[in-house]
């Protein structure tokens, strides 16, 4: 467990997050013209998740 934490502490944020952000940008760009409603609901769901998460963090502190 300590080893795992040390490993995580040494590195910054996950490199996967940068990759997925770029890919989601591509996906939204591609889908915007063909099915705008689906892309909008996708973005709104993510926004709802972020809001929920933020409230959790604020209530914990």
């Amino acid at each position: 467990m300590i080893f795992l934490q040390a490993d995580l502490l040494g590195t910054g944020p996950s490199p996967f997050s940068e990759i997925i952000v770029k890919a989601v940008c591509l996906l939204v760009d591609a889908g915007w013209n063909s099915d705008r409603a689906a892309v909008k609901s996708f973005l709104l769901t993510l926004a709802a998740y972020v809001r929920e998460r933020l409230e959790q963090v604020m209530s914990c502190s």
Binding site: I19, I20, K22, A23, V24, L26, L27, A30, G31, S34
Partner: peptide
């Protein structure tokens, strides 16, 4: 991931 996102334009 990048490949799938790129291909999704045709879907």
């Amino acid at each position: 991931v990048t490949g799938v996102a790129r291909v999704s334009a045709y879907q």
